[in-house]
Amino acid sequence: MANGVFEWEVPLVELEKRIEELRRFTHDEGIDFTEEIATLERKAEKLRREIYASMTPWQRVQMVRHSKRPTTLDYIGLIFDEFIELHGDRTFRDDPAIVGGIALLDGRPVTVVGPQKGRDTKENIRRNFGLPHPEGYRKAIRLMEQAEKFGRPIITLIDVVGAYPGIEAEERGQGVVIAESIRRMSFLRVPIISVITGEGGSGGALAIGVGNRLLMLENAWYSVISPEMCAQILWRDVKRAPEAAQSLRLTAKDLLELGVIDEVIPEPLGGAHRGPEEVAASIKAAILRHLSELDRLSPDELVEDRLARYRRIGAVAQASQA
């Protein structure tokens, strides 16, 4: 990728540049290129559809890592009327890799939690590239239990490569905290809607992703392991990540077919960074729609609904001779 353009997008981007030039020429020089522009526009549209409709899983994985892709805080700003961020796990420290707080969704208070990647190098360092430590997950649990206390719905926006694999994270019990988060989230007596907006990296995503509804942006991925790590472990060759991405069936479309998610939220051609407002509006509409359904359930029913949703996931059969 160069200048935010993936190699498979290059022909399209060059065409778009030419159209832009002709427009400027028409405007500045007063020469009429309307017809040429229209022809090129049609060509560009065709190319756009070809390129983005046939994206491989690995291309999608790369696309959601685009530096311009909207982050959790970007979406929070676009989806909610207002947001008050709350900090700290009350035990160790505030983990900047997870943000959370209370927001207004069309005037209704909800709790929002999600990992936060940096939008530039400096912020990425501060936020540890959005890779949470145990205290980040503890903060998430704290805020979600706070939501339960006050009967607020919980929205989690997930974009995380994984829980941070580091010495301090291990020392502070990354595995135990993730197990604890999954367990507690499963039994919360308020509606929970989780949206995978970018990367859904394994236990680090699941720990804040146990929802009554699980929605996914069109290009997002969600898997037990990243394609690179899978390729490394299975074939000791990280260059085979594209193959692993294919085999893992980690795209939104795959997960819908596998019955793991409830809905795919469309992105503009070329990815969410080409239209953050449009994507945010789609996410908001989907959240509101699912929330209105969940609002009809009692707290007990919400827990049962959530547990039943996960209980049925599994691919088992009786062995023929056993």
């Binding site: 197990a179 999954i182 394994s202 236990g203 699941l206 969600y222 898997s223 037990v224 893992l248 069936r249 980690l250 997960l255 596998l258 793991v260 996960y310 996931i313 599994g314 691919a315």
Partner: peptide
């Protein structure tokens, strides 16, 4: 894949 993750 994801089915394993859901077993957690």
């Amino acid at each position: 894949g994801i089915i394993s993750l859901m077993q957690m």
